[in-house]
């Protein structure tokens, strides 16, 4: 879906310290979420432009991995525009009510979602998996006071990120195998389609758990010391 892989490069962002990038991402995301309408639009456009410059990425490079995501955003926008309840409908038909409130809501949700997705996508593309892990770990240092296993969490998050494309590949493979033996994912009633997903989801989860099992043994064999072991 989204291009969640590291791209080698030497931009300013590539060279920025991981912990600064991580905290910056959190900070910018919060600012975006707390603002609305025109202010939010200005902030979002500025942030994305600055990032594009710092990461040496063109508009095409930033947005084209998100192509498949746009459909999802359009759906969200339409859902909000058509179905938000309001006293002042500009146009109404049965349960459909197009109102200023709805349009505003839809716009803001899409803007927030799109901006944060772009910020995260640029972050992931300019930060290696190990750097992400170190960044999260450094940023969470203060939490160690509460005995939270920050090192383990950081490792888990960075591994999860890198295995997302692997997981999608597995699903593709399983889908082909099931289709080859007669599964049909596009047919039948709504209930049928939900049920038809089972031969896809169960093997995919089993495969994911299997990977997790093997990987955890490999990590342990390489001397990783969980926070709980450090006495």
């Amino acid at each position: 879906m989204i291009d969640l892989t590291y791209q080698t490069g030497n931009s300013i962002l590539h060279r920025t310290k991981p912990v600064i990038k991580f905290l910056g991402l959190i900070f910018c995301s919060v600012i975006v979420l707390l603002s609305k309408n025109l202010l939010c639009t200005l902030i979002s456009v500025s942030l994305i432009t600055i990032l594009m410059v710092f990461a040496n990425l063109s508009i095409k490079e930033v947005f084209s991995p998100l192509k498949k995501f746009f459909f999802f955003l359009i759906m969200i926008f339409l859902m909000n525009v058509l179905f938000t309840n309001s006293d002042e409908c500009l146009y109404s038909y049965y349960f459909i009510c197009i109102s200023e409130k709805g349009i505003e809501q839809g716009y803001n949700i899409v803007l927030h979602t799109l901006t944060i997705t772009v910020l995260s996508s640029v972050y992931i593309r300019t930060t290696t998996s190990i750097e992400i892990m170190k960044g999260i770990e450094s940023a969470m240092q203060p939490l160690r006071v509460f005995n939270i296993p920050t090192k383990d969490i950081a490792l888990i998050m960075s591994i999860a990120l890198q295995f997302i494309p692997v997981f999608f590949n597995d699903i593709e493979r399983i889908k082909k195998a099931q289709m080859a033996r007669g599964a049909n994912f596009n047919r039948g009633s709504f209930l049928d389609r939900i049920r038809s997903v089972i031969p896809l989801v169960i093997p995919a989860f089993i495969s994911a758990f299997h990977r997790a099992d093997e990987l955890s043994i490999a990590i342990e064999a390489r001397g990783f010391q969980s926070d709980k072991e450090n006495t």
Partner: peptide
């Protein structure tokens, strides 16, 4: 697809039933 069947590499990755017969039946259900 009924006349041309493919068995992928490591095909046990596609199992999802808890019963051998049901697993086989999946292909001829339709």
């Amino acid at each position: 697809r009924k006349k041309v069947q493919m068995v992928f590499q490591f095909p046990e990755n596609q199992f999802f039933e808890t019963d051998i017969r049901k697993e086989i039946e999946f292909g001829i259900k339709n």
